[in-house]
Amino acid sequence: MTEKKIKLLIVEDNEQIRELFRRTFIREPQVEVLEAKNGVDAFKKFQELQPDVVLSDVEMPGEIDGISLCQKIKSSANPCHVILISGHGQQRNVDMGMEAGADAYKVKPVNPIELIRIVKSFGDKD
């Protein structure tokens, strides 16, 4: 039985960090990494490629930031799991993310092992 790959869309404006996330999952064969560099691009890719999990930075330039992206995904016809990552770890920020419908809210720096575990757990549930 071919194990279904988990499609992970990484949304991050900082190229270096996006690369870091990509490399975090590089040794995970069951995770297929997709990338987007801003909110608009991400939502477009979400609609086109139907990822299982979206891992998005909260603070991003442009029309759509992480919170808005999460809201849009969650209110779309075919929503998926959303993990929000932010530099701001205050309760207020966490609350905002959770209210937007995020499945997890992680404060940078994120432990890569934990991130892999969360992504995998969402993939398993699927």
Partner: peptide, 19 residues
């Protein structure tokens, strides 16, 4: 914020190095 991002990279890549 910018500094944090830089540190995130440092910590992240250092983590990859550890692995």
């Amino acid at each position: 914020h910018d500094f944090n991002n830089i540190l995130v990279s440092i910590v992240g890549y250092n983590g990859l190095n550890t692995t």
